[in-house]
Simulated assay, not measured.
Amino acid sequence: MLRVAICDDEKEMRETICGFLRKYPSVEAVECFDCGEAFLQKRGHFDLVFLDIDMDDMDGIETGRRIRKWDKQIYIVYVTHLPDYQKYAMGVHAFGYLEKPVHKSDIEAALQEVEAYKRETEQPVFLEFKTEEGILRFDVKDIFYFEYINRRIHMCTQRGVFYLRQKMGEVAELMKPYDFSQPHKSFCVNLFHVKAIKGYDIQMTNSDVVPLSQKKSAAFREQLNVYLEHLIG
């Protein structure tokens, strides 16, 4: 699944690209920004950004350079009217370039290229779990979180919810090497899928909200910060 940003000072272009993205099955989230400053202030975790080169104030090249200071992994696809645009983007390591006007086929081709590259460069980690439906195999990144309810573990995944007869302590210890952490005694969450923290609520990428206990708040926030720093290199 892809989390995608659009950064373009033309409202019509943002809406056009957004419309294409929302119809693409593997795009799970889309967020729009009308200038480079707004995108940089957000510092959200995105897999891909469609970035306009010719913007007022801070252009797309400078925005791209600043992005690379804190995020080495995001795929940058430049969108522009400018001729000979590639010469402007030295040092940004853009993944691709699209010329305006942008068509649906252009966006789909860019998304397919990003997905193919991600599959080649990211080695999935699979674990087996003894669920009530039998022994099942899951990609670690497909697991959102574990929740302990009524003496069993609810494992929330992209494939649905599965049930385990284990103790939360056992699950938390098993998942610790894979960047899972406990924000609450009854939960163990995948840091990869933490979208935001608001007060004592953790917003997950699947729109679920997980509680953050006051007792574990400082340690969990520190773990998340360390994880994000490692993620962006």
Score class of each variant (00 low, 15 high):
Lys118Ala: 10
Tyr78Met: 06
Phe192Met: 09
His230Glu: 12
Asp57Arg: 15
Gly96Tyr: 07
Arg3Gln: 14
Tyr148Met: 09
Ile197Gly: 04
Val194Asp: 00
Met155Lys: 01
Cys156His: 13
Lys69Gln: 14
Gln166Trp: 00
Leu98Pro: 04
Asp139Glu: 14
Gly60Asp: 03
Asp71Gly: 08
Glu28Ser: 12
Val92His: 10
Thr80Phe: 06
Phe180Thr: 03
Ser213Phe: 02
Val92Thr: 14
Thr131Gln: 01
Pro177His: 01
Glu10Trp: 08
Arg14Leu: 07
Trp70Asp: 11
Asp59Asn: 15
Cys35Ile: 09
Thr131Lys: 00
Val114Gln: 06
Thr205Arg: 09
Tyr97Lys: 02
Glu173Trp: 00
Asp8Arg: 07
Leu228Gly: 05
Ala38Lys: 13
Cys7Pro: 05
Thr157Lys: 10
Gln158Tyr: 09
Phe95Thr: 00
Arg65Met: 14
Glu147Arg: 10
Asp8Lys: 08
Leu82Phe: 06
Val125Ser: 03
Met90Phe: 11
Cys32Met: 15
Val125Ala: 02
Val210Thr: 01
Asp47Arg: 10
Phe39Gln: 05
Tyr163Asp: 00
Leu191Asn: 00
Leu111Ala: 03
Gln203Val: 13
Gly64Ser: 08
Ser217Arg: 12
Leu224Ala: 01
Pro183His: 01
Tyr75Thr: 02
Phe162Asp: 00
Phe33Tyr: 12
Ile135Ala: 08
Asn225Glu: 12
Val4Met: 10
Asn150Phe: 07
Thr131Trp: 04
Lys130Val: 02
Phe192Ala: 10
Asp9Lys: 07
Lys118Val: 05
Leu228Trp: 10
Trp70Phe: 15
Thr121Met: 12
Ile74Cys: 03
Cys156Ala: 14
Ala196Gln: 13
Cys188Glu: 01
Glu133Ala: 10
Ser181Ile: 01
Glu37Phe: 05
Val209Tyr: 09
His45Ala: 14
